[in-house]
């Protein structure tokens, strides 16, 4: 597999949300608008690239039995860095995403990639893998966020195109479940064609 394939596999074929249904919590919770979804996706992508790179560098130095705890420490460190940086430079977005920033640490995608890919591959391919997966995640979040924002508030990227209210339920909790359900069903259908 060349690096290009390695990079693009996270977009559709192995997209963490749409194909593997990993990392659902932030997907549902933070996609009330396109901007929020993208913000969450980028934060996660940063952690993915960072942790994948460091894990790949240290993979041979870490004894097998303490592999998972070591990975968790590395991931938690990157999450804390993102947490502090966002608090300092994008405080509004930080407040909207709230508890889901520290919770990146338990996002199955991050630990999953560290364990399944980064611990067995070179630093370069791990970084690319992290970036590809992160972008795939960001893309899915952005699309879902835009979809819910369009239906729910009649705007996209905070640009209003209809007056009055949208279909409120799509911004509320039930809309998140339903929108993601149909999104995955659609992808399944296209894939099976």
């Amino acid at each position: 597999m060349n690096q290009l394939q390695n990079f693009t596999k996270g977009f559709v074929r192995e997209n963490p949300i749409l194909m593997l249904v990993l990392g659902c919590c932030p997907t549902l919770a933070t996609t009330t608008s396109a901007v929020n979804g993208l913000g969450m996706g980028i934060a996660t992508a940063f952690v993915l690239v960072g942790s994948n790179t460091v894990v790949a560098m240290l993979a041979n130095l870490i004894p097998d039995k303490v592999r998972i705890p070591s990975f968790i420490i590395i991931i938690a460190s990157f999450v804390t860095v993102v947490d502090l940086l966002m608090k300092a430079y994008v405080p509004d977005l930080y407040e909207t995403l709230g508890i889901f920033i520290p919770l990146i640490v338990v996002n199955c995608i991050v630990l999953g990639r560290a364990e399944a890919f980064a611990s067995k591959n070179t630093v370069l391919s791990s970084a690319i893998d992290g970036l590809g997966m992160g972008l795939g995640f960001t893309m899915a979040l952005g699309i879902l966020g835009a979809f819910r924002e369009i239906l729910g508030s009649g705007s996209v990227f905070n640009y209003r195109f209809i007056q009055g209210d949208g279909i409120l339920v799509f911004i509320l909790a039930p809309g998140a479940f339903i929108a993601l359900g149909y999104f995955i069903a659609l992808v399944n259908r296209v894939k099976n064609k």
């Binding site: 509320l172 998140a176 479940f177 339903i178 359900g181 995955i184 069903a185 659609l186 399944n188 259908r189």
Partner: peptide, 17 residues
């Protein structure tokens, strides 16, 4: 077919919510 598994569970969860 496309709704089997995760998608239908998500939609059900949505109605529960």
């Amino acid at each position: 077919k496309g709704m089997k598994g995760v998608p239908i569970s998500l939609v059900t969860a949505g109605i529960l919510a």
